[in-house]
């Protein structure tokens, strides 16, 4: 053993990691910015050939002066959101964060959580523990994120990736899937932001890292598990 390793072995064990480690927080906010770019520029692109005749997005909330500028934004954001998303998936799997925080999901727990929420008995005192409904929503939005990228690739390259396009039936149904994923993300975003504002500690935790947690458990080190 050389001197360096000896030195490392002698130091005190470092304190438990934060609830949201720095790489996770970075990925979260990069994703947030890229998602806003994708949604707002996507709306402008959608307006050029609407899927639903009754639905045009007001220009005030779209990104890009004309369609070409919206396309430029979209195909810039595409790289950010796909690479950041891929890094997030790898991080979640490799560090075990997905397994610790998002699983298992039991249907009876989901029902119980919904019941508690409807009767205003849902507690939020432990930020580090996701309730069953949160788990369902987070797993769901990750899956939607994967589908929105795949359907986007199929629309971008319906010939070069013709095998991928077949998964979505044809070009127009791939467009529809891409649109519905966007709608699901916007819906999630509305609930997610509303809840983050209702429990400001959770928003703060995504900025500063939140409480330190024992890596062996999904619960806070400072707070006993319920």
């Amino acid at each position: 053993m050389d001197g360096m390793t000896m030195k490392v072995a002698e130091v005190e064990p470092s304190p438990p990691a934060r609830l949201h480690p720095l790489p996770l927080r970075l990925m979260h906010w990069i994703n947030a910015a890229a998602m806003l770019i994708m949604i707002a520029s996507g709306w402008k692109i959608y307006n050029d050939e609407v899927i639903f005749g009754w639905l045009h997005v007001p220009d005030a909330i779209t990104l890009g002066k004309y369609a070409q500028h919206a396309l430029q934004w979209h195909f810039f954001g595409m790289w950010v959101i796909a690479l950041n998303g891929l890094a997030y998936l790898i991080y979640g799997i490799v560090t075990g964060r997905f397994r610790r925080k998002l699983f298992p999901i039991w249907p009876h727990e989901v029902l119980a959580t919904v019941r508690d929420a409807l009767t205003f008995r849902l507690r939020h005192d432990d930020l580090t523990h996701y309730n069953a409904v949160q788990r369902v929503l987070y797993v769901g939005i990750i899956l939607v994120g994967i589908v929105v990228v795949l359907s986007g690739l199929a629309i971008w390259k319906p010939v070069q990736l013709s095998g991928l396009l077949v998964l979505f039936y044809d070009f127009q149904t791939a467009r529809l899937v891409h649109f519905l994923c966007m709608a699901a993300i916007v819906l999630f975003l509305a609930v997610h932001v509303a809840l983050a504002l209702l429990v400001p500690r959770s928003l703060l935790a995504m900025l500063t890292g939140g409480p330190r947690v024992d890596p062996a458990s999904s619960h806070s080190a400072a707070m006993p598990a319920e």
Binding site: H69, Q72, W73, F75, F76, W79, K157, V159, Q160, S162
Partner: peptide, 23 residues
Amino acid sequence: LLAVSQWNDRVQAAIFRGDHLAP
């Protein structure tokens, strides 16, 4: 944004396959 669009030109040229046919 234009620089990214030109980068996307290069990516598309790289993934283009001369023998891959459109359906």
